[in-house]
């Protein structure tokens, strides 16, 4: 019986293996996270070459091995090169990829997560293209990845870090798909819908002023934004105006849920 198969895949990242090989972490529509050996890819003449950079959307042919799969063919669906060329978009994209690659088990089919990833990258590319057209996101001049400049600086004219807001929307949706949707409309402890000034990952979401639980202060604007990001399509999330404080609080809520319920600390902040 042949153990070869074809599937759509998105490249999440890779690490070196032996002299000239790589293990590429693919997220496939057929098997979810699929660590895949690509032989000779680090050589200049490799036929896969630039197809295996993060965010690239591919149609791949894989051979199923005992522990790892092997890539036998790849055709590009979309390169998403624009995302890699814009630091704020790259950072936001890596943040989402980090969360996705650390939730769920390897070779666990997660079609809804795959669709979320595809839509996220398509929307991010639109955001980058629009930013570049405005002159706000030109490669080499945009702030973001390592410079410590505030989120507001990324799209100064609009005052919105659109890649970060889009990533936060995708990350909240990923938490929902992973079964960790936080309570945002009522107190996670008593159910009260009055004032909700705190967020507690341990309690499972927003908390009223009276209920106990380890928590951090959260503004009504941040809670409203989280509800909007969860309920709206990603295209709408990218257009959402979100001030820097609400962005930071939303990211902190995502990070605390990851720490408490999923057992890992996210490595890249989108904001």
């Amino acid at each position: 019986m042949s153990r070869g198969y074809s599937t759509e895949a998105i490249v999440l990242g890779s690490h070196k293996l032996r002299e000239a090989d790589r293990v590429v972490n693919l997220f496939t529509s057929a098997r979810g996270k699929t660590p895949t050996v690509v032989k000779g890819v680090r050589k200049v003449g490799s036929r896969f070459g630039g197809r295996l950079e993060p965010f690239t959307h591919l149609e791949v042919q894989l051979h199923e091995g005992r522990t790892l799969h092997t890539l036998t063919g790849a055709d590009t669906v979309r390169t998403h090169a624009a995302i890699r060329g814009q630091p704020a978009a790259l950072k936001a994209g890596l943040s989402f990829i980090d969360l996705l690659s650390r939730t769920g088990a390897e070779l666990e089919r997660r079609p809804r997560c795959f669709n979320l990833l595809v839509r996220f990258l398509d929307e991010m590319e639109k955001v980058v293209s629009a930013g570049t057209a405005d002159g706000a996101g030109e490669t080499g001049s945009a702030p973001g990845l390592h410079d410590g400049r505030s989120a507001d600086d990324v799209d100064g004219a609009a005052g919105v870090n659109r890649p970060a807001v889009l990533a936060l929307g995708a990350e909240l949706k990923l938490l929902l798909l992973s079964g960790y949707l936080p309570h945002l409309s009522s107190c996670a402890h008593c159910g009260s819908e009055e004032s909700l000034p705190r967020f507690s990952a341990m309690a499972g979401g927003a908390l009223c002023a009276d209920c106990p639980g380890e928590s951090f202060p959260v503004s009504a604007a941040a809670l409203e934004a989280m509800r909007f990001l969860l309920e709206s399509p990603l295209a709408a999330a990218a257009g959402r105006r979100l001030d820097a404080a609400a962005e930071r609080e939303t990211w902190r809520a995502v990070r605390e849920v990851c720490r408490y319920h999923l057992g890992f600390d996210p490595r890249v902040a989108p904001v």
Binding site: G49, G50, R51
Partner: peptide, 17 residues
């Protein structure tokens, strides 16, 4: 494109560059 390679087999990102 690497010297000595065939354009036919180049990936899209490399050809764009």
């Amino acid at each position: 494109l690497p010297v000595g390679a065939d354009l036919e087999y180049a990936d899209e990102a490399t050809v764009s560059r």
